[in-house]
Every structure is written in C-alpha cells, then in structure tokens.
C-alpha cells in the first residue's frame, strides 16, 4: 500500500508541476497563439490522469482503444468544422 501511495503521490506531484508551467506560460506574450502550449500541456495532464489515476496502464487494450475513440471522434468533428471556417472567405 505504501509503494502504491508513493506512486500516486509522484503522479500528483507531476500534475502540480505541469499546472505551474502552464500557468506561467500563459504570461508570455504569445497573443493569439497562447492557447497552443496550454492545450498541449492539458493533454499531457489528461494522459497522466488516464494512465495512472484511471489505471489505464494496467488495463486491457480494449480500454485503451475505447478511451481514444472519444477523442478521435471529437477531432473528426473539430477538423471538419474548422475546415469550413478557415476556408470560408475564399473564393471572394
């Protein structure tokens, strides 16, 4: 139990660290692009939570696939919607 506790604690520590980084990065003058680093870090944090807190690491491959499917389908939705919006001004 002790070993497990330390293991979870390390994950929590990493999460805290990433939170500090993402918050700090937000103060950089990146203007319209400041979402990019913070969203990347959010994905890393989500990955940590899924792997360790949600115990995906010890789970069968089926669950890996399932956990990815939601994000995969969401990216399809976003991809095609964004495609419409960025190509909308043309041809003028």
């Amino acid at each position: 139990m002790k070993a497990k506790f330390g293991h979870y604690l390390r994950v929590l520590g990493s999460l805290y660290l990433l939170l500090a980084i993402t918050t700090g990065l937000a103060f950089l003058p990146l203007d319209a692009w400041n979402w990019l680093p913070s969203v990347v870090i959010a994905f890393v944090m989500a990955g940590l939570i899924m792997l360790f807190f949600m115990r995906l690491r010890q789970s069968e491959p089926l669950l890996w696939l399932t956990s990815a499917s939601g994000f995969a389908w969401l990216s399809l939705l976003m991809l095609f919607v964004v495609l419409d919006y960025i190509s909308r001004p043309w041809p003028r």
């Binding site: 095609f80 495609l83 419409d84 190509s87 909308r88 043309w90 041809p91």
Partner: peptide, 15 residues
C-alpha cells in the same frame, strides 16, 4: 459526410 446537408447553406465551397 454531414456537410452534404449544407451545400447551399453558406458553408465554405471547399468544405
């Protein structure tokens, strides 16, 4: 393929 309901809706021609 959902965008084929929107060919005349004002979505981008490329989409």
């Amino acid at each position: 393929v959902w965008g084929h309901h929107m060919f005349v809706s004002g979505q981008s021609v490329y989409a």
